[in-house]
Amino acid sequence: MDLSIVASYLLIGISRGMFYFVLAAGLTLILGVLKIINFAHGSLYMLGAFFMYTFIGIAGQGTGAFFLSAVMAAITVGFISFIIEQMLLKHLYGKEHLMQMLLTYSLVLIFGDSVEMIWGTDYYTVAMPKLLSGSYHIFGTYISKFYLLFLISGLLTVVLLWLYMYKTKLGKIARAVATNRSMVEALGINADATFMYAFVIGGVLAGLGGAIASPAVNITSQMGDSIIIKVFLVVIVGGLGNIWGSLIAAIIFGISESFGVLIFPRFEIAFPFAIAAIVLILKPRGILSK
């Protein structure tokens, strides 16, 4: 096989993985800090796409308007997450897991129906900005410019999350809470604010994921359903609650899917699941588990 083709599929795979990471990072952060399996993460992703659609309608079609709308959509979803955390989740900390799961699952149904009531059941679409349309022709092969969006968003998420987790006090507390919550509370540190921040950051990332995916997918009330399964798998393979494990798992998933299309298109869907199975057999608690 031509080396340039291999390189192009590798790049596509990494970009695709970065997109999965944007979604998985939020989910695993919430799981690690709050110990909550947030079923509504896919709904927040879907909301991000719908807000993107609405904001683009206001801001216009330019490249600047596109990025501004994406940031606004992510912030709006972050605000919704803030309300969810303050009004609902907050009252369920320390309660049994089933209650928390029921709550986040009920949010999936509420958001799905609300979106259909507000936006309707039609397909919606967001145009790709000019800057990201077309493909690069490098070394005799093609790469869609669109993948830059995934790559940059993913890298930005990595950097910002690293800064948050390792350079801020809240992040350090979050890491401490993830490791030993009772010890943190015994030291007199109020973990509530940490929980709120973690949930809002998770929401912002889900919203950002929806916004950057919006020019490539159908914007519908069900768009979160299929992606969330894969994102959950990334989180599991990476090690529950482990952000950097998720990053590795997401990139492995992206690359395996991309090469799956090239090598064995009919069975491309099976590749990431096969890898998940192999990893979980070798390391049942995930790639970066201790």
């Binding site: 596509i12 992606i227 899917e257 299309v261 090239l262 491309e268």
Partner: peptide, 20 residues
């Protein structure tokens, strides 16, 4: 020939295969 699953979220690799 190539077939993608219904609801495929990223057609990039498939389009690349066609371009090549």
């Amino acid at each position: 020939k190539s077939w993608f699953r219904v609801g495929e979220p990223d057609f990039g690799p498939y389009i690349n295969a066609i371009l090549i």
